[in-house]
Write a protein that binds this DNA or RNA. Structure first.
Lengths: 239, 239
DNA sequence: CGTGCTCTTGACAGTAGTCAAGATGAGTGG
DNA sequence: CCACTCATCTTGACTACTGTCAAGAGCACG
């Protein structure tokens, strides 16, 4: 059930059999969530964390005028709100962007891990630090990249992250987002995202249509984005 | 020496005497860093973390064209790169924006904390999760707030964060940044920051001159920024 | 009392936003 | 099986916020 989480973590460090089994024992309920449902609201008191098994979720915040910023897109294997374990409540909302399957992990079991498995604790800590690294790269995009580079960068990142958990096929992957969803990730309007996707398509770099991303020229996509995967910490090493 | 760190952590949870003393024993060398010096470069192999005792530091990334995005401004008491403990290398640079005094904490000692002090480990984990929460709020600023709201929000945040460590005087605080530094935090050009500060000053909301921030009307500043301190997690509770 | 950095301002440019209308397409009910 | 509906996508025309370029002022420091 937690195979994708293990793929993600084992790409960054090696877990022992004991640690893997502690992780396997961690989930409580498995729940299906319909598309568009906000499962956690900012400020809610939380006693469990959410592991995404299948589907796409996001974290978002919004302003009074209704404009929304997605701060992270989550793919299967992501521990969507592992950080709620120490924060106890969140500063943002979490919603399903597609129908999702999640596993709920009681904070009590995470606490037991911190008491008994120091190395596994560091690996989980690492996982939240990785989220923060993704946040920083997005800040660079939001603050300094052009709409085109920002969009290209996003598509590169998701390509790598889905690849880690085995959800790419060559240079193609499924991404059931609307252009509005995309615009909320990218800090743009959906109209401008539409124009930007058109430009990327006409330059034969990448295409995003009907929930499918097809990368025609990965090298050019990465160049347009100034993408390097460094910030995704894809080296197995002791944490 | 680590009093400001303790103020920061004790505002979020209570540390035991043992835990405080473990933290006091953690720092190795104390070092002075001149203004503008980049002390850590992205990719460097790291074996210690940096605790900021005095001065202002920042984390930043840049693009090939030279434009720079600061992803976090650090104030005294901040564990600037605590996350390097699990990441082992960083995805961003760290530099001093003013003359600084730092304490260097060997990762070995942090590792010992994770082996012997589970609760203190969770508190330190919390501290990195707090950085990520600040990242998310900045993403909302960069992606969705106007230049004016974004600038106002930044000044609110720093006001609160400096207040926690006793570095405000009423509604005034010292902030020895240039407008270029500010623009790199805010994802704007320095010219536009200049105009935005002028607008805030002329509306008698806040003034930023000569390294001094004077808030004339905190309520209006917070309203202009849509600022609430929720994301700074200012409640002492078991982590 | 220069030198250089920072701040300030004006004129102009351009990227991205706004508004609006029509196209496309999947799902629904008659 | 065929309208019909609603969400999403697309495009054009226009707007505006922020960026660019440039020059001059202010000021600390040697």
């Amino acid at each position: 059930m937690i195979e994708k989480l293990l793929m993600k973590l084992n790409a960054r460090d090696m877990l022992s059999a004991d640690e893997e089994s502690a992780l396997r024992d961690a989930p409580g309920a498995v729940v299906d969530v319909p598309s568009d449902k906000t499962i956690i609201r900012a400020g809610d008191e939380l006693s469990q964390s959410t592991l995404l098994l299948d589907g796409l979720m996001c974290r978002y915040k919004d302003l009074r005028n209704g404009s929304r910023q997605i701060s992270e897109l989550h793919v299967p294997g992501d521990f969507v709100d592992l950080h709620s374990f120490t924060l106890k409540r969140l500063d943002h909302n979490i919603m399903a962007l597609t129908p999702c399957r999640i596993a709920q992990v009681p904070h009590e079991r995470l606490k037991a891990i911190t008491e008994n498995f120091p190395h596994l604790t560091r690996v989980l800590w690492f996982a939240t630090n990785l989220d923060a690294a993704i946040h920083r790269e997005w800040m660079l995009s939001l603050g300094r990249r052009t709409a085109l580079a920002r969009t290209a960068h996003f598509l590169c990142e998701i390509y790598v992250r889905l690849g880690i958990v085995g959800l790419t096929e060559g240079t193609t992957y499924l991404l059931a987002l609307t252009q509005v969803d995309l615009s909320e990730c990218l800090g743009l309007t959906s109209v401008h995202v539409n124009r930007t996707l058109k430009a990327l398509r006409e330059q034969e770099i990448v295409e995003f249509r009907g929930g499918v991303v097809t990368i025609f020229d990965l090298a050019r996509l990465e160049r347009a984005a100034e993408f390097t995967g460094d910030y995704l910490y894809l080296e197995p090493r002791p944490r």
